[in-house]
């Protein structure tokens, strides 16, 4: 009988343990796989802020994930070929330093989220779901047919971007970089959720009218949540490009938005560690089923349906129920 908080601690222990196991068993691939879980977990945590805590069901977070990925890819592509990127307002030929790339990714994702948020937040419910999808689809079709950076073929950067003193090409090093980001993002989210601002956006999910009536400008609150959410997901996109040393429009596709959303729902909506657990569950399932049968998607679908019918609101809720009994 363990409760959610203890379980969360175990997750963290596990995240530190897995690379060690991978090292012992000489299976570096499991490090790569866990890195993927961590990155997609970050993307999910970003979405969860808007979707889980504030009730903003965005079906377009692939836009931020993809933008973060493309900004990283493009900057590094120019640095690699020492090609001029633009000459106005200042001369730039890209960069392959993560310390330069990350701030740019954060700023550009935030900016995109601001624009999409400003235009989308006038709508609610299913309309909001679909308008966010629309913006992501626009970017997707744009990326496919824009020839400069590979179009549908995508963009290879061959080498991971660099950090001073650290060899990022080593799977273990890169894993720890991503893990640091995960911890940072979890820390920030936790602070945010428990702040007065956090109380406001969680209250909006319950009853927006009531929040309005106490004089809070709910539109601004929602916009800010949406921007933070998009920024975190954009950052995950940047790390994903570095993981694969490659970016293509497929991460801008609506299926990507759907997948991030599935991680969130699967793990448990509005639970800090939910998306991480969801991503881990999904990817482990995909890997195990995939090694047994070609028709793994059939079984994956079946398991997901059973999960939703019988476990109800996410894997982590399993541990919450136990808590209630213990009391």
């Amino acid at each position: 009988m363990i409760i959610e908080k203890t379980f969360n601690k175990w997750i963290l222990v596990f995240l530190f343990l897995i690379p060690v196991l991978g090292f012992i068993f000489e299976e570096p691939y499991y490090i790569t796989l866990t890195t993927k879980v961590v990155i997609l977990g970050i993307a999910g945590i970003g979405l969860n802020l808007a979707l889980g805590y504030c009730g903003l069901i965005s079906f377009g977070h692939a836009a931020f994930f993809g933008l973060g990925g493309y900004v990283t890819g493009i900057l590094s592509f120019h640095a690699l070929n020492s090609e001029l990127m633009f000459s106005w307002p200042f001369v730039s030929s890209g960069s392959s330093d993560m310390l330069v790339i990350w701030p740019i990714v954060i700023l550009s994702s935030a900016f995109l989220a601001l624009i999409i948020g400003l235009l989308s937040l006038r709508t609610t419910g299913v309309y909001f779901i679909m308008i966010t999808l629309a913006f992501a689809q626009m970017l997707y079709f744009f990326a496919i047919s824009w020839p400069n950076y590979g179009g549908e073929d995508g963009l290879s950067i061959y080498m991971r971007n660099s950090l001073p003193m650290i060899n990022t090409m080593d799977p273990l090093n890169f894993y720890f970089i991503c893990l640091c980001w995960l911890l940072t993002v979890i820390f920030i989210s936790a602070k945010l959720i428990n702040s007065s601002f956090g109380m406001a956006f969680q209250a909006i999910k319950q009853n927006e009218e009531r929040v309005k009536s106490v004089g809070i400008e709910t539109f601004k609150v929602k916009l800010l949540v949406f921007v933070i959410s998009g920024t975190i997901t954009g950052l995950a996109g940047s790390l994903y490009t570095d993981l694969n040393r490659f970016i293509s429009p497929s991460v801008l596709n609506w299926q990507m938005s759907g997948e991030i959303m599935v991680f969130v729902i699967l793990g448990g909506i509005a639970r800090l560690y939910g998306p991480l657990v969801g991503a881990a569950f999904f990817i482990v399932l995909e890997q195990t089923l995939g090694s047994y049968t070609e028709n793994w998607q059939f079984w994956l679908g079946l398991i997901l349906i059973l999960e939703i019918l019988y476990v109800r609101t996410g894997i982590l809720s399993l541990f919450e129920k136990k808590l209630k009994y213990e009391k």
Binding site: E27, Y29, T32, G154, P171, Y240, N244, S248, S250
Partner: peptide
Amino acid sequence: RKPDIAVQLADKMIQS
């Protein structure tokens, strides 16, 4: 048919 999956599989096959 997903490029990112293909890259990860290639990593697995080469590394593991």
